[in-house]
């Protein structure tokens, strides 16, 4: 149980760190990274929750996998958009 708790707290901390990044950082690339850190935090919480029982909860894993897919595609889109935005500033 302590291990689960450790990862839970770690995940929540990561999540809070990501939020803190969103609230303090100005550059768009850093903000994208912050959002990703938030995502990692949530996924860690979810995996930790899945590991509470003897045989891990497959539903949670499925959710995390789906979440990763969503997060990756969203990040790609955000990166492209931020690059376009920066290019505009340069011109």
């Amino acid at each position: 149980m302590t291990q689960v708790l450790f990862y839970l707290i770690l995940g929540v901390c990561l999540w809070a760190l990501g939020l803190y990044g969103l609230l303090r950082l100005k550059e768009s690339i850093r903000r994208i990274i912050s959002v990703n850190i938030m995502g990692s935090g949530v996924f860690m919480v979810m995996v930790a929750l899945a590991a509470r029982s003897e045989d891990p909860d497959p539903v949670m894993h499925a959710l995390v996998v789906t979440g990763l897919v969503v997060a990756i595609s969203a990040t790609a889109f955000a990166l492209r958009l931020s690059v376009a935005d920066v290019q505009e500033d340069d011109q």
């Binding site: 939020l19 803190y20 969103l22 609230l23 303090r24 100005k26 903000r31």
Partner: peptide, 15 residues
């Protein structure tokens, strides 16, 4: 003006 920052602050305060 900095939409993301202010909204994140509001979110943090709400939490």
């Amino acid at each position: 003006r900095d939409v993301v920052q202010v909204s994140a602050w509001v979110m943090a305060l709400g939490l």
